[in-house]
Design a protein around this nucleic acid. Structure first.
Lengths: 135, 135
DNA sequence: CTGCGACTTGAAGTGCGATTCAAGTCAAGG
DNA sequence: CCTTGACTTGAATCGCACTTCAAGTCGCAG
């Protein structure tokens, strides 16, 4: 009846992450096993929620270190909340850029210029404000 | 009067990229100098457009190798056009994810749960489809 | 001609996010 | 008890996008 715990292989499979990645995240403080079964890490099922969050944040461009900081955030941490607001604004810009990029690509898939660089429509999609290329 | 050409330092400054990055891009086939002044590369001004395009694409998550392929695309390259369409679709997903992330962050900046992971609103923002985390 | 300083080169180094590897440990089954 | 096979570990390696470095080369002012 105490089979509430998942072992690492199960978590890996369900989360879509490699076991090595789980150990990597653990080292970085993003997750922690509930205990061990012999040498094997065992996790509470809610680690899956956490991992979904991590994956999403990763794919949104956050570093593992940043995510670690977010995960320990408390309501009193105004400093971190400010950083989050900043991040939200950055995401806003990213979204705008990606949207332009998507439109440009869509057009490129059908336009008839010799090379993309010669296509004025395509160029327009990218001649935005001089971005310093963060990432 | 033939001062239409910019030298590498000028291009670096105007594009916001390091000279080393320009040389790197050259090695990867993304840009080419118009000529040399002694050892110094000189560029036609339109290299700046190209670099803006490169920077934008980079920040949209394309690898330098991909960008190189896009830049030499011709209308007949249906294969590449298909890849572009695929990319456009991927961007669509990225945009959706980033949008959720942004909303989650905005909420997080003001909600009052002990840790973010405990905030149901925040969780909801990320409990999307099990993303395999490309990037 | 000489020296300065800004460029040139290829090779090595950096940071991030993992993955891969060799060697070790464990529980369970024969 | 001994094998099997899935896990464990830390260390090494990888890929990407650059940056940094040592050593060399150039144009030009003096």
């Amino acid at each position: 009846m105490s089979e509430a715990l998942l072992d690492i292989a199960e978590v890996a499979e369900r989360s879509g992450l490699a076991p090595s990645a789980l150990r990597f995240y653990e080292k970085k403080g993003l997750i922690a096993p509930a205990g061990r079964n012999g040498l094997r890490r065992t996790y509470r099922p809610d680690v899956l929620d956490r991992l979904a969050l991590v994956s999403c944040a990763r794919s949104a461009g956050f570093t593992v270190a940043e995510i670690g900081r977010f995960l320990v955030a408390t309501p009193g941490d105004t400093d971190l909340r400010a950083r989050m607001a900043v991040k939200a604004r950055e995401l806003e810009e990213d979204i705008a850029r990606l949207t332009r990029m998507r439109d440009g690509l869509r057009h490129a898939a059908t336009c008839a210029h010799e090379t993309l660089v010669e296509c004025p429509d395509f160029k327009r999609a990218f001649a935005g404000p001089p971005q310093p290329v963060p990432r």
